[in-house]
Design a protein around this nucleic acid. Structure first.
Length: 803
RNA sequence: GCGGCUGUGGCGGAACUGGCAGACGCACCAGACUCAAAAUCUGGCGGUAGUGAUACCGUGUGGGUUCGAGUCCCACCAGCCGCACCA
């Protein structure tokens, strides 16, 4: 054995060996564990130390599970459709598939350098026709189920990507990918009816072992609310306006009504005198970007000249138009109760509309409101309803209205259907043929995949037309139903399409008959641990859950939720900024591997901080773990050949090491696992020096425990200990509780709650003896005082209260 | 604006159900080895006062509960994240 830790040699050797003889063999007797990373987009920049953080974590868990006797599925693949490859293609006139293949090769090389135990036979690539055949197949099923439909409507349009965006991609009115301000464009698009699954997507969140933050973000995004639709008769007309409200208890206080500028009946509701003003207002609203509409919160609006009748008290209610009402939520019309809604209050003040208080805070007198009161209270000024408790009435009134034919109980969601088509080249073609006679016809399943054709220009157009639209020989086809000439759908799918089901494909990735066999799905799914960044809290994770539920409904998968446990690793920044090529702050793992070795970098990635918290990268800390691994090497080198019999003290340290490392592994608090290793190794070294030797079991225990973290070093040391087989064939040790019982314990001594020293006592010593000993030790501090109270917590603390 | 999370040395961070705050590591300082440096090893390392044992202060701020609070409760401040007029 070399006296020095030659990581280069060792890592090379064992990497080659593991590639020949994988440590994670197929074995149907063992229990199974599916540990999944969010698969990467194979970017030209390659991986940086931030990517490694998640991959190391999942690899450590995978190896830990192997040691615990599981058969582990830990696959990797490529989310390879998408804009960067396409933009690169436009710039350099290289086919995206070529750039993608190059990038994959590079990233794969980097992944080999962390020695993650990926099973490359399970690799998937979303751009591979044998993969996207099934992405298209799923779309066809959705079409047949009525979940995929076409619609023309104003959509989020990114002027920079020249492409429509889903609502999830346009939060805050800004393009999720490039940060451009999103505008609206009226286009015919394919939509997926994710709203049909809103309730199940919300309800099933409860069953998931996910960070509460992510669950909350999803439930907020779905945005379920309970309320009522109420019909208001328009004065001197047979028209009705239906509004949605979550506060039907305030109905008597509705003093005006506001319609969204896009509300369809506005022209008929507008009086001739108001016509010009209303048309002008609606036109201006239509030209505003959603960012303007959001940031400019100053209320604006215009009166239509018409009135409707409040159904519960017969009052005349003026009808206004204002852009603070959203056209696509609820009915696009609201009743306004300025006394009890902040926005309505502001509007009423600005346009001098009446404010009628209908809720009085309990225990307070009625008084003039200086701001909207939105809390609970007693209903007043509301006829029969007076005296009811508002928040209780809120639940019962919808039924009351329903029985009188004035409205009905309703539920609403913020979630909108998913805009699913994109006007770009590098994506899955949507497998639909448009026929003049038959309408939209899905490509028959035996003709899938619809291959992405070669194209002369990848450039997106200003008009919202896909680059595929110009390839006539591809576009022109025949209708699968009637055989007459027809045209192919030229939009492609969003990048989310391929990533919404890839976790299903890993379990049976060579299957050309179905997307995955029921048997393989039952065997592996759902994913036991899913590791990835928080940025997908709503997007990918919501879409993947939706896909899974759809596939469950068509009997293709036997479960409703794909990811049992989710772990979000924190982002790694450099100088406070997200690592990116354009900022020039990318820390590449390659150099660090060369300098310190893969094992050191793996451990440092975990040691930088709590794994779920963002942290700033600093190279200097890696010296600490590098020194630690050297220490372990020297420890084994120094003592392996002359073992001593186990001592009581050493057995204690060994078992507490096992216990703490295991507990911390289970909690995924990886930074404390590493510090635990350091702490207990220091204790082993001190003891070894004091007793002039270490027992073999202690050294071997340390080596096995360390194996998931520093696999090469551990494997080498394991063989140095004289073993012929892999350390990963060993069993993760279990702490022997009997060795953790101490004879004596050091307790803290306090006087009036202040720390005044320690005392060594026999474990579970009698109270009287401990107190006597404590008083003796503290004699000088309590000499001229009287002890008025004695507090004794067994094996922990004595606190003497003196006067 | 609403909601959530987080505030501990020069830095990253420990502290299980309230019980010796600052584990572990980085950086730094001193010493050993060396002609010297690097590497390595040993020791020190929250603040103030004192030669010293020691004393007092100290986990964002202010209150409270408790024998005892980083940990529990109330109010506030700061930072980060999410949502963005969803009626």
């Amino acid at each position: 054995m070399n006296a020095r830790y030659e990581f280069n040699e060792i890592e090379k050797k064992w990497r080659a060996e593991w590639e020949k003889n994988p440590i994670n063999k197929e074995d149907d007797v063992k229990p199974r564990f599916y540990c999944l990373d969010m698969f990467p987009y194979p970017s030209g920049t390659g991986l940086h130390v931030g990517h490694w953080r998640g991959y190391v974590l999942s690899d450590v868990v995978s190896r830990y599970k192997v040691l615990q006797g599981y058969q582990v599925l830990h696959p990797m693949g490529w989310d390879a459709f998408g804009l960067p490859a396409e933009n690169f293609a436009i710039k350099n006139n290289i086919h995206p598939s070529i750039a993608t293949a190059n990038n994959i090769a590079n990233v794969k090389r980097q992944l080999h350098e962390i020695s993650a135990i990926y099973d490359w036979d399970k690799e998937v690539n979303t751009t591979d026709p044998s993969y996207y055949k099934w992405t298209q197949w799923i779309f066809v099923q959705m079409f047949k189920m009525g979940l995929a439909y076409e619609k023309e409507m104003p959509l989020n349009w990114c002027p920079s990507c020249k492409c429509v965006l889903a609502n999830e991609e346009a939060t805050s009115g800004v393009c999720e990918r490039c940060g451009s301000v999103v505008t609206k464009k009226n286009l015919r698009q394919w939509m997926l009816k994710i709203t049909a699954y809103a309730d199940r997507l919300l309800e099933d969140l409860k069953t998931l072992d996910w960070p509460e933050k992510v669950k909350k973000m999803q439930s907020d995004w779905i945005g379920k609310s309970y309320g009522a639709e109420v019909s208001f008769q328009v004065e001197n007309s047979d028209k009705e306006i239906v509004v949605y409200t979550t506060r039907p208890d305030t109905l008597h206080g509705a003093t005006f009504m506001v319609l969204a500028p896009e509300y369809k009946d506005i022209p008929e509701l507008t009086t001739p005198e108001q016509k010009e003003a209303v048309e002008k207002y609606c036109y201006e609203a239509s030209t505003k970007s959603s960012v303007d509409r959001m940031t400019n919160k100053e209320k604006t609006g215009v009166f239509t000249g018409s009135y409707c009748i409040n159904p519960v008290n017969g009052n005349r209610v003026p009808i206004w138009v204002a852009d603070y009402v959203l056209a696509d939520y609820g009915t696009g019309a609201i009743m306004c109760v300025p006394a009890h809604d902040e926005r309505d209050f502001e509007f009423a003040k600005k346009f001098d509309l009446p404010i009628v208080q209908v809720i009085r805070p309990e225990g307070e007198e009625e008084k003039e409101l200086t701001e909207a009161y939105v809390g609970d209270g007693i209903i007043v000024n509301s006829g029969d309803w007076n005296g009811m408790k508002a928040f209780e009435a809120k639940k019962s009134i919808p039924d009351l209205l329903e029985s009188k034919g004035l409205g009905k109980k309703t539920v609403n969601y913020k979630l909108r259907d998913w805009v699913f088509s994109r006007q770009r080249y590098w994506g899955e073609p949507i497998p639909i043929v448009h026929c003049e006679h038959c309408g939209a016809v899905p490509v028959p399943e035996d003709q899938l995949p619809v291959l992405l054709p070669e194209v002369e220009s990848y450039k997106p157009t200003e008009t919202g037309e896909s680059p595929l639209a110009h390839i006539e020989e591809w576009v022109n086809t025949t209708c699968p139903k009637c055989g007459r000439p027809a045209k192919r759908e030229t939009n492609t799918m969003p990048q989310w399409a391929g990533s919404s089901w890839y976790f299903l494909r890993y379990v049976d990735n060579h299957n050309d008959k179905e997307l995955a066999s029921m048997e393989a799905l039952k065997k592996w799914m759902p994913v036991d641990l899913y590791v990835g960044g928080i940025e997908h809290a709503v997007l990918h994770l919501l879409y993947a859950r939706f896909y899974t539920k759809v596939l469950y409904d068509c009997g293709v998968v036997p479960f409703e939720e794909p990811f049992h446990k989710l772990f979000n690793q924190g982002m790694i920044t450099k100088n406070g900024a997200k690592m990116s090529k354009s900022v020039g702050n990318v820390v590449s793992p390659d150099d660090l591997v060369a300098k310190y070795g893969c094992d050191s970098l793996r451990m440092y990635e975990l040691f930088v901080g709590p794994p779920e918290i963002d942290c700033d990268w600093d190279d200097s800390g890696i010296d600490g773990v590098y020194r630690y691994l050297n220490k372990v090497w020297k420890l084994v080198y120094a003592y392996k050949d002359a073992p001593v019999a186990p001592t009581k003290d050493m057995e204690y340290v060994r078992n507490i090491l096992i216990r703490d490392i295991t507990n911390r592994m289970e909690a995924l608090t990886m930074n404390t696992v590493v510090s635990g290793f350091m702490e207990y190794t220091n204790r082993i070294i001190d003891l070894a020096k004091a007793q002039n030797g270490v027992d073999t079991e202690t050294l071997e225990t340390l080596i096995i425990l360390l194996a998931p973290f520093a696999p090469h070093l551990s494997e080498e040391l394991w063989h140095e200990m004289g073993h012929e087989t892999s350390v990963f064939a060993e069993k993760w040790p279990v702490a022997d509780e009997s060795k953790l019982v101490l004879d004596s314990v050091e307790i803290a001594l306090q006087v009036n709650g202040k720390f005044r020293g320690t005392l060594e006592i026999a474990i579970n010593e009698e109270k009287e003896k401990v107190l006597a000993a404590a008083k003796e030790t503290l004699a000088a501090k309590i000499a001229d005082k009287t002890v008025v109270k004695e507090i004794y917590v067994p094996n922990k603390i004595v606190n003497l209260i003196v006067k």
